[in-house]
Amino acid sequence: MPYLMAGFPDLETSRAVGEACIDAGANLLELGVPFSDPLADGPVIHAAATEALRAGSTLHGVLRVCESLAEQVPVVLMVYANVVLAGGDGAFAERAAAAGAAGLIVPDLPHDEAAGIRESCDANGLALVPLAAPNTPPERLRAIAADARGFVYTVSVAGTTGERRELPPELRDTVERVRGAADVPVAVGFGISTADQARQVGEIADGVIVGSRVVRAAGEGGPDAVAEVVAELASAL
């Protein structure tokens, strides 16, 4: 499950990057909506968001990219809370659904704050995918899982998005805890960048999310470089 930043380096290229991901074997795409202050993101995705906004990316443009990719594979939007709330969460959910999105991941929307946006998503047939962290206490994890739609996005490490040399040793345990609490599939993201890491995560989780590595490739070599990275990752799974 590759993550790409819509509008980076520009809208048209990001659409081509999405196409390249699909051609290389991605069966679901996570499409980042650029935000000025992405708290959960490390330097690579942060810089890509800044660049996308500088290049004039708008929500309208992002949703056009979503529309074209969603005809081929399910697309989940990764979007910060303020972008969802700015024009009202109902209106946002309606627009996202009209653009063919399958769901939303809102990285700065913990369970306690999520009820309103989840309602709007439900009303528009969108899955509000919750996040769980390695340090999420058991009782809270049960509440998150009970309200999960689509899948549970399990954050592999305490930290922001970004490539890391090694997977945390407690990852298997984290994933098992989430799986034990959830009826929906479990995907793992943050810190996964190599084929070997993807294979290891693929053995314990239902989905493997790779973000910064893909975004870095998009910045360095465009769609061709992304195709290469995604194909390598896909072959490891």
Partner: peptide
């Protein structure tokens, strides 16, 4: 108000 932060910070 509220707590619009990544889930990782909630326990802290």
């Amino acid at each position: 108000g509220g707590r619009y932060v990544p889930e990782t910070l909630i326990p802290a």
